[in-house]
Design a protein around this nucleic acid. Structure first.
Length: 312
RNA sequence: CGCGGGGUAGAGCAGCUCGGUAGCUCGUCAGGCCCAUAACCUGAAGGUCAGUUGGUUCAAAUCCACUCCCCGCAA
């Protein structure tokens, strides 16, 4: 069977999904439908913003479906007669009834090297854990989350300079490469799935708002991981004078100074350094609530008397 | 009408509550110091304060109204 004849449904929502969808279209795949999260009122004005995949789908005249609850509303997919459903960061649990519809089953591109990091935020957790390597997995979708057989993986190297934004981009590229290389094999039944080793499973559940606050009990390296994993969105923060200060970029430093945990021990044009439990980090880009995101120099210019302050 | 903060020299902020022609940190330019410097010293340029908006006033960055834009939260 040729890929052009395959009746595909894509399920996905964010930018990474949109990128992979478009690359697959360019490669000749034929999508008969996109299923994405509903557009939601966004921003202070409450304007409805189209989800990224929808923009791509409309560009190629692909029908778009945005059920509020896929769990209850999936029968429409049956009438599309899909051969295969491919999912990448859709955002809702997919009911068994839908999984059973496509003749060739349902595949998922997951943002980790399974069985590690099952769940909603695998890419962020790789950074939070200061991993140096992660990857995309092409897997069989089963009802249990991210638990199906793995058909193929593609590794991605995590650089020290990576944050969530840059890693998502790399993962998108990896996802595209992986699916374009392996989907033809899958269609022809040449791809063999491998069960996950349940003893090695770890989870990466979605990150809750309260986790965005940096925990000063952690090591400097761990805190750096959280900063990278939450940057640029939503951004990790600490409190200074009861105001949220988001940190978008930081680095470990080792100065012959020391202070209390959480104390700002340096605030000049060479750096804005905070003492932590076992080391120090230099803050490079930060944002006070209600203000713009600034490099540390500008931040210091407008916030005098930082030296000696304690963050919480 | 979801809640809140803000728009002042190139950048980041103060001033506005107690209206009377604008200050700080940094940057820039010139000069000096120094073996040297992103360090230090001296001096200079640069803003009419989001709006060719309306109002109050002898007088508004500072008070009131409206408009535009930015940001945090919540969604």
């Amino acid at each position: 069977m040729k890929k052009e004849e395959l009746r595909l449904i894509f399920m996905g929502t964010p930018n990474m999904s949109a990128y992979v969808l478009e690359e697959m279209i360019k490669d000749g795949y034929h999508f008969i439908g996109l299923i994405a999260q509903p557009d939601r009122p966004s921003g202070r004005k409450g304007e409805l913003i189209k989800v990224p995949t929808k923009i791509v789908a409309e560009k190629y005249h692909i029908p778009v479906f945005q059920p509020l609850k896929i769990r209850q509303d999936y029968e429409f997919a049956r009438s599309l007669h899909p051969d295969l459903i491919l999912t990448l960061a859709y955002g809702q649990i997919i009911p068994q009834g839908l999984l059973d519809i496509p003749r060739l089953g349902c595949l998922n591109l997951h943002g980790s090297l399974l069985p590690k990091y099952r769940g909603a935020a695998p890419i962020q957790y790789a950074l939070i854990d200061n991993a140096t390597k992660t990857g995309m997995s092409l897997m069989q979708m089963v009802y249990k989350m991210d638990a199906g057989q793995v058909f193929a993986t593609k590794e991605v190297i995590i650089e020290n300079s990576d944050n969530a934004t840059s890693l998502f981009k790399k993962m998108g590229v990896a996802a595209k490469g992986l699916i374009l290389e392996t989907l033809p094999l899958y269609i022809n039944g040449q791809l063999v799935g491998k069960e996950q080793d349940e003893s090695l499973v770890t989870f990466a559940p979605s990150i809750k708002p309260e986790q965005e606050r940096l925990n000063l009990e952690l090591s400097a390296q761990q805190i750096l991981g959280w900063i990278r994993g939450l940057s640029d969105r939503p951004g990790a923060y600490f409190l200074l004078n009861d105001q949220k200060i988001k940190i978008f970029r930081a680095e470990l430093v080792d100065l012959p100074l020391c202070g209390k945990v959480g104390e700002i021990i340096k605030a000049d044009k060479k750096g804005l350094v905070i003492q932590l439990k076992d080391g120090q980090i230099s803050l490079l880009e930060l944002q006070k609530e209600g203000k713009k995101r600034l490099d540390y120099r500008s931040f210091i210019n407008g916030n005098q008397h930082l030296l000696g302050s304690l963050i919480k």
